[in-house]
Simulated scan of single mutants.
Amino acid sequence: MSTDIVAGPTPAGVRVERLVTSGTFTLDGGEWEVDNNVWIVGDDTRCVVIDCAHDPDAILAAIGERELTHILCTHAHNDHIDGAPGVARATGAPIHLHPGDRVLWELTFPDTAPDADLEDGQRIPVGDLELQVRHTPGHAPGAVCLYAEALGVVFSGDTLFNGGPGATGRSFSDYPTIVFSIREQLLTLPPETIVLTGHGDATTIGAEAAGLGQA
């Protein structure tokens, strides 16, 4: 597996790389084979990983010799966190998750816990930019999106896809809640903002606003 640079670099060299990993999503007694986007944000020295999905070895290879400072989870469905403990053990980086998703985390890892909470409005430094945490419940109670204003991108996890809101047909999800989250926390961003999703292709805030009748 290899990474593609999808945004940046900033003047100080911070860029966004995408690694696609494959595995199984399990919930409510069902199993689905899925491809996940793993996002690496950083420069040549330090980086963070957003959603350690499926394959710790591939993620560690993509990080290379860089210092990993944060493992950030957009939510705790197993396909977004199953590689996180392995990457954390190998690097010493702390795992961050919104406390609203502890109930989902414990379905996959009942005997361990994340290292730190993510909070709405929190700002996480990455080189010369910051990732702003935006709490977007609906797909999962503790779902968050991460907005990098300096790059003009938002990492939407499974809250918003190319084509509309994330799924809400399983436990701990709710459609009116996800629509409210998208309208309040994402559609308020500049329309040209690139949406980097948990699965599949990118989109823009403007395109998805039009799809939700808010252009």
Rank of each mutant, 00 (worst) to 15 (best):
I81L: 13
P94S: 12
G200N: 09
L68F: 07
V133N: 03
P137W: 09
P114T: 11
D117M: 02
V6M: 06
G121W: 11
Q122A: 15
A116E: 15
D79Q: 12
D111E: 15
D51I: 02
T21S: 14
P137M: 04
F180Q: 14
T3D: 02
A7F: 10
E65L: 07
T69Y: 01
V144W: 02
H80I: 06
A93Q: 10
F172I: 00
D128C: 08
V195R: 02
V103D: 08
A88M: 05
A58F: 01
S22F: 04
L19S: 01
G64W: 06
G100K: 13
D111M: 08
E184R: 13
D111T: 14
E130W: 03
D57Y: 00
G13E: 12
T21L: 10
D82G: 01
A76S: 14
I178Q: 03
V133G: 06
D174E: 12
P99W: 12
R183V: 15
L129C: 03
E208C: 05
P99F: 11
H80T: 07
I124Y: 06
E33W: 00
E31T: 14
T136R: 07
D82E: 14
P110R: 11
V195M: 06
A90L: 07
G30F: 13
L72R: 05
I205Y: 04
V133P: 07
I59F: 05
L212I: 05
H70R: 15
A210G: 04
T188N: 06
V6L: 14
T188Q: 13
A53Y: 00
F109V: 12
D28W: 08
E106Y: 13
N78E: 03
A84C: 13
A12M: 07
G213F: 06
L129G: 02
G64P: 10
D101C: 07
T91N: 04
C145P: 00
T24I: 14
P85L: 09
P176F: 11
A143M: 02
P85F: 05
V6H: 04
G23S: 11
G211L: 15
W39G: 03
L160A: 08
G157M: 06
G213R: 06
P114E: 11
E119F: 05
A150W: 02
P11L: 12
P9Q: 08
G200W: 09
A90M: 07
L146S: 08
G206L: 05
P9C: 11
I59G: 05
T197L: 03
L27T: 12
V153I: 14
C47P: 04
S173G: 13
D201L: 12
A62N: 05
L160G: 01
A148Q: 02
R183W: 01
G13P: 09
A7W: 08
I194L: 13
E184M: 12
T45N: 09
G211E: 11
P176C: 08
S173D: 09
G30Q: 13
G166N: 09
A61P: 00
C145M: 13
G83H: 04
D28H: 04
A148L: 06
R66D: 03
A88W: 01
D117T: 07
F109N: 10
V126C: 05
P56E: 02
T168S: 14
A143S: 15
G138W: 07
D35N: 15
I50C: 05
D117I: 00
R170P: 00
L72C: 07
E130T: 14
